[in-house]
Design a protein around this nucleic acid. Structure first.
Length: 433
RNA sequence: UGGGGUGUAGCUCAAUUGGCAGAGCGCCUGGCUGUUAACCAGGAGGUUGGUGGUUCAAAUCCACCCGCCCCAGCCA
């Protein structure tokens, strides 16, 4: 082993002229006879090493000729500024040592089919576009926590194993809980509502499970959702929080992930325009606008994906569509006093075809009306007893929303399908790897 | 679940009217002192998703089955 200090590729500019040691994986090699190149990725960056046959012991040159793609290596050599090298720096290699030899690597630097790549997701993660997308995801997640922390929200971790809690009982994953049926949570919302009187502003952030047999580029069976909930906030205030939240997340990504967005070839023009206020359109006005554009939609039916796309034709900013008909929405949403056919709720539609990234609402705070809605939907009353308690022991106006992390990251990165924006996607027909 | 596609070498794809199963990449061998997904020459690599049928002859036509992709519904 060498006693030369190990450094990282991202710090090479501090080491010009020094002899350093790098630990990483071989992206590719190019051997020309008397000079050769090895491109190494160490997780912080990618750098090219140059080997000159006449200046090296034969056994080191032989290592270069035999090393395979994705082998783990230790590279020792002199850091040089070099205009011809990608990244501007390169290593004049004096030693290369194979730590873990790789077998023939399945993923080549070329086009592959989706099924093949998903079968090799555990290796695909190493590719440059995947690294860029997942790094943006991590930044988005961090900015979610930072924004809410700055606004005095308290994080509440809600249970993943539940009784039948959520919006629609038909789309839950069922499991056995010591002989009793249990379900994987499809929302933490009802639980953050319970924490609201304890902390005023709360949120949960975690995986969410939906057993819907959806096969579109916008759906996963396991996805991550952040759900803020605020006491004494009405629907209008809820939307103001949402637009501030989205603006912060987008700004942070533009600021801290510029390199990743460039790798992803994301045109950031429209992202740079994102700032409050976002346009607001009532459901009723949306239907009128769609009808004016020739749609056959009728008042009362939910907006479909094509309807949403037509509405977004007129907008570069995210669009709030609010106050949907009660029948199209969940039981816990508060009736709109100005139009009792509708509920105080909103969706937030992302531009550029990315669709719904937020669903939010003011919650029904009247115990009798809530119970009536639970009965109307035929939901198991006993399961919701604790939820009704929240209205019996000091009820209060409150609102909240759920933001889908993968959809948001897909929009920010400009990727077509959200399955690339979660490290190990769970789809209807995919549980491996 | 419905509609539309698709399945050929490890990978990405060709194969005319039904007529010898092909290329590029990767891999192996040799050559080359500055490559950027290097280049040049040679080599290995196939039960054409499965079953059955039509035919002198099927990757190609027919039936059924299976996998996958896209769109829709459901939603974030």
């Amino acid at each position: 082993m060498s006693d030369i200090a190990v450094t990282e590729v991202r710090r090479l500019s501090e080491h010009v002229g020094d002899e350093v040691r790098l630990l990483g994986w071989v992206d590719t090699t190019r051997v020309h006879g008397k000079v050769g190149f090895v491109v190494v990725r160490d997780g912080t960056g990618v750098v090219q090493g140059v080997l000159v046959k006449s200046e090296l012991p034969e056994e080191i040159w032989n290592v270069l000729e035999g090393v395979t793609q994705e082998s783990t290596v230790a590279l020792t050599g002199l850091v040089k500024e070099e205009a011809r090298a990608p990244g501007g720096f390169e290593i004049g290699v004096t030693a290369i040592e194979v730590i873990g030899a790789a077998e023939e690597y399945p993923i080549q630097p070329k086009e592959h089919g989706v099924e093949f790549l998903l079968d090799h997701r555990h290796l695909w993660l190493r590719s440059s576009l995947q690294r860029a997308g997942l790094r943006v995801r991590a930044e988005v997640e961090q900015s979610i926590h930072d924004f809410l922390y700055q606004r005095d929200f308290v994080r509440i971790d809600t249970p993943i194993l539940t009784g039948a809690i959520g919006e629609h009982a038909g789309s839950l994953f069922e499991t056995d809980y010591f002989g009793v049926p249990a379900f994987l949570a499809q929302t933490g919302q009802l639980y953050v509502e319970a924490a609201c009187p304890a902390f005023r502003r709360v949120y949960c952030f975690g995986p969410t499970f939906r057993a819907e047999k959806s096969k579109t580029r916008r759906h996963l069976t396991e996805f991550w959702m952040v759900e803020p909930e605020v006491a004494f906030a009405d629907s209008a205030e809820n939307m103001r929080l949402q637009e501030d939240f989205i603006t912060y997340i987008v700004e942070r990504a533009l600021e801290r992930c510029a390199e990743e967005l460039k790798v992803l070839e994301r045109d950031t023009t429209k992202l740079e325009m994102v700032r409050p206020p976002f346009p607001r359109l009532s459901y009723t006005d949306a239907v009128a606008r769609l009808q004016a554009k020739g749609s056959e939609i009728e008042w009362g039916s939910d907006l479909g994906a094509p309807d949403e796309e037509v509405l977004m034709e007129d907008h570069d900013l995210p669009l709030f569509v609010h106050d949907y008909p009660k029948g199209a929405k969940a039981f816990y949403m508060k009736e709109n006093p100005e139009d009792p056919r509708t509920a105080l709720c909103n969706d937030l539609l992302a531009p550029e075809g990315y669709g719904e990234i937020i669903g939010g609402s003011q919650r029904e705070d009247d115990a009798d009306k809530l119970l009536a809605r639970i009965r109307e939907e035929g939901l198991p009353e006993e399961t919701y007893r604790w939820y009704l308690d929240l209205r019996r022991y000091g009820t209060f106006t409150h609102s909240g929303f759920g933001l889908g992390v993968e959809r948001t990251v897909a929009w920010i990165t400009g990727r077509h399908h959200i399955r690339e924006l979660i490290p190990f996607p769970r789809l209807m027909n995919r549980l491996y790897p």
